[in-house]
Amino acid sequence: MSTSTRLTGSHRLAVSTGLLLCCALCGCGNPEGGGDAEAGRIVVTGSSTIAPLMAEIAKRFESRHPGVRVDVQTGGSSRGIADARSGLADLGMASRSLKDDEAELLAFPIATDGVCLIVHADNPIEELTREQVIGIYTGTISNWQAAGGSDAPITVVNKAEGRSTLELFLAHFGLEARQIAADVVIGDNEQGIKTVAGNPHAIGYVSIGTAEHDAAAGVPIRLLSLAGVKARVSTVKSGEFPLSRTLNLVSSSPPRGLVKDLVDFARSAEVHDLIEQLSFVPLVAPEREPARQAQPGLESASATAAPY
């Protein structure tokens, strides 16, 4: 009897030790972020627009630098900037230019991206004037008939507060967030495309790269021309398309070592095929030394002229 009791006892001891270990492991966790570039781990966080591209670039970078791991996480441009600032990430990704209060950061443009208006493929509209777009988004035009279409109510698809696409759109059309009378508010590009594809009377605006890719894949959407310029990756590339933005890598101090290698790699011609594959537009001639605040470099890179 006593033997059996002891056996059960040690069994229980084993169980409790196991439980203790579990606790200890849970407690420890893994101190996240704060990429240790020297040990071969680079953390990149930020814009969900840049993340898929950055992930591809990282894959290629890793294959050329064995032992290096690049960790790409999304969370939006603001997170990219906050993480680069706090040092949680080695590099941030921002799909917009830096704001005035972010002047202490360094921006390294890696590609450009255009934003275009999309409607359902069944909608006969080909192009809208600036006034019509403003009218539709502020609610003064609420039927497609008034914009040259069929007699149907317009479903206005807008982006959520804080998105860089929204800021770019508002700035281009000289609107304010409060003026927009939206019927649907969406998060990312794909959700916007699905919403418009599912509603013949909807209008929205998304990244040209994603829209052109999806339209080519048979999703029933049409990209609207803007100011007489067709919304194509090619017109963004040539700088004709008025509504475009720069995709940046952001860092709080001049990058060194592996991080510098990664930034240089992301800006080199070696990744242009990846940029094009993801329907973004490579920069024509990447600057070697980005200026502080990088604004001049940025503007010249996207020499596009959106007059705002």
Binding site: A152, P153, T155, D183, V184, Q191, K194, T195, G198, N199, H201, A202
Partner: peptide
């Protein structure tokens, strides 16, 4: 919901979502 239900509701009473 996004691909089936919302278009159905939209056809009945826009905007659907």
């Amino acid at each position: 919901g996004l691909t089936v239900l919302v278009p159905l509701v939209n056809a009945w009473h826009p905007p659907g979502a």
